[in-house]
Amino acid sequence: MKNISTLKTIINVFYWLLVLSFGGTILALLGINFAGFFTSGEGLSIFSIFNSWQFLLIFIPLLVLYFLFIKGVHHLRATMPLLSTGDLFAEKVSGHFSKAGKLFSIVGVLGILFQLIVPLIASSKMKVSLDFTTISCVFLMIIGLFFLFFGEVFQKAKMIQEENDLTI
């Protein structure tokens, strides 16, 4: 149980750091965009990028991906109280693992697509690279598939436990 309580603490801290950074990012973007209205003359050129369609096309999907990732971590966080009480085969556990897996897989796939589309938008060139972000997206897809598999395993284990309870 010590390991689960440690994992619960780590996931809670990670979740709240993600939520705070997401809120801070939105506030910073709104603040920078709002500050552009108060500048005049030469100062406007600094903030002109935030009013362009390219900004919206790049940062809005990034914020959506970030939100989906936070939602996936939230589903993992929701499993911790059930796991810490020993209720391993609750239907909620397998459901939360499956939802987290789907969200992580979606974020990974969309992250890779985003890596391919952004250079087309920004510079009208197709650029394929194997950098840290691409590897992170692939890793996130693998983690997502793992949690999908884990959710299915917990669902099967629940069915086997119910059968076992009926035969005894």
Rank of each mutant, 00 (worst) to 15 (best):
M1L: 09
M1P: 10
K2R: 11
N3Q: 15
N3F: 13
N3H: 11
T6P: 00
T6N: 11
T6A: 10
L7M: 12
L7I: 07
K8T: 15
K8R: 15
N12V: 11
N12M: 14
F14C: 06
F14I: 11
Y15N: 08
W16L: 08
W16G: 04
L20E: 10
L27F: 08
L27G: 05
L29H: 13
L30I: 15
G31W: 06
G31I: 04
G31T: 04
G31M: 08
A35G: 00
F37I: 01
T39A: 12
G41H: 12
E42N: 09
E42I: 09
I46M: 09
F47C: 01
S48K: 14
N51S: 12
L56R: 02
L57G: 15
I58P: 03
F59Y: 15
I60C: 06
P61L: 07
L62M: 13
L63I: 12
L65D: 05
F67N: 01
I70C: 03
K71G: 00
G72F: 05
G72H: 03
G72N: 02
H75P: 05
L76Q: 01
T79P: 04
M80S: 04
S84E: 15
S84K: 10
S84A: 15
T85H: 00
G86N: 06
K92L: 10
K92Q: 13
V93M: 11
S94P: 05
H96T: 02
S98D: 03
A100G: 07
A100V: 09
A100E: 05
G101T: 09
G101K: 06
L103Y: 15
I106E: 06
G108L: 01
G108Y: 03
G111A: 08
I112Q: 02
I117L: 07
I117K: 00
V118M: 08
I121H: 06
A122H: 00
S124D: 14
K127Y: 09
S129P: 06
L130G: 00
D131T: 03
D131N: 13
F132Q: 12
T133E: 14
S136A: 14
L140K: 04
M141L: 14
I143W: 00
I143F: 04
L145G: 10
L148H: 00
F149C: 02
K156P: 04
A157N: 08
K158Q: 13
K158W: 04
E163H: 09
T167C: 02
T167Q: 05
I168A: 08
I168M: 01
